[in-house]
Computed example of a mutant assay.
Amino acid sequence: MPVAVYEFPLCEKVRNYLRLEQLFKQLDHTATFDNEFESLHFFDVFFTLLDLLERLDVRTDFIRDIDVHEKNLVHWSNHPNIDTGALESALKTLHRLLSELKRTNKLGSNLKDDRFLSSIRQRFSIPGGATSFDLPHLFCWLKQSKDVRNKDIASWEKHLVIVRENITLLMQYLRERGRYEEVVATNGFYQGIVTDKVDLIRVRCSNIQGYFPVLSGNKYRYGIRFMQLVPDEGSAGGVKSDIKFEIACC
């Protein structure tokens, strides 16, 4: 049965991590463009990513989270059944990322000095602003060989490698904290309790039954309401039947 995984962050930090993670996935999808219209989407995603990094202090969150994970791994090193090789590899990666973060000031700030990016970035914030008559130098670049374009893209993306690596690793650790268990939403509603260590709720359910989950709550408890994709006439859209699904608290 086709299933979908919905992720609901319970804190602003994880919300920002998920946004960055999705933008990197979009970036990967659009970086190997074959025509100019796909390339415009690449720059749109790229500049959105830069805007987000400029508004957030993710560097501080990265350093704090890596420090916590490092301490946890050191604690696990005393376990008799621990995989020593895997532990040493993980610690080496954490040490490297932490060292690179401490040598870096504002993440992605070096890209501000790129004359080409700076000359086109502002136009992308204007609806329909990225046209050939507004940005002839961009469309000249689009007509260059794929090797030339790929080399430029690689040079821009290398400034964000540290962000990508941190997001990938920290989200992996976060998701591994939770294990799925099957529960039932009675009349389409399920309620759970929030603990101090829960930052992310993952819901895995059918993707062909015409419903989707919506989460609401506070620092003490949360509720998941399943809604109809196409509401019945005169209905608020809530599912009235019992629904089995899987949930992981991370």
Rank of each mutant, 00 (worst) to 15 (best):
E246M: 14
E165F: 02
Y190T: 03
R55Q: 13
L20I: 06
A90N: 07
G192Q: 04
V184W: 09
T131N: 11
L10R: 15
R121Q: 09
H75Q: 09
A236H: 01
L101P: 01
T30Y: 10
F43A: 01
L169M: 11
D242A: 04
D61R: 03
V230R: 08
S39P: 03
R15N: 13
L50D: 14
R123G: 07
T84N: 04
V239N: 08
L111M: 15
L27W: 05
L160G: 15
K92R: 05
D134R: 14
H95W: 00
V74H: 14
P80R: 05
L107Q: 07
N110R: 15
D196K: 00
L49T: 10
D65N: 02
K219P: 00
E88L: 09
Q122H: 00
D51K: 12
P136A: 10
Y17P: 02
N35H: 10
N35S: 05
L53G: 01
E100T: 06
V198S: 02
A154M: 15
K92W: 05
I120M: 11
G237E: 04
R59K: 01
A248C: 10
R149V: 12
V14L: 11
Y173F: 11
I208E: 02
F24V: 07
F47K: 08
D67S: 15
Y173C: 07
V148Y: 12
I247D: 07
L23D: 03
R204Q: 13
L98V: 03
F42E: 09
S132N: 12
V163P: 05
I120A: 12
V74A: 13
D196I: 00
E36F: 04
N81P: 01
L20N: 09
G210K: 00
S206M: 04
R121M: 05
A86G: 08
I167F: 02
G234N: 08
F212A: 03
H159K: 15
K146F: 01
P136V: 12
I193Q: 07
D83P: 09
I126M: 09
F226H: 03
T93Q: 13
G128E: 04
C11N: 14
A4G: 05
R149N: 07
R221S: 07
R64L: 04
D65R: 02
S145G: 15
Y173W: 06
E36H: 04
E12S: 10
N105Y: 15
N81T: 13
R19G: 07
G188Q: 06
T131V: 01
L50Y: 14
D44H: 03
L52D: 07
T32R: 11
V45C: 03
F226L: 00
R55L: 13
E176P: 00
C249M: 10
L117A: 14
F116P: 08
V198D: 10
S39G: 09
G238Y: 05
W141T: 10
I66N: 02
N110M: 11
L174V: 01
G129F: 06
H41P: 04
H29L: 02
F37Y: 08
R15E: 14
F8Y: 12
V68H: 04
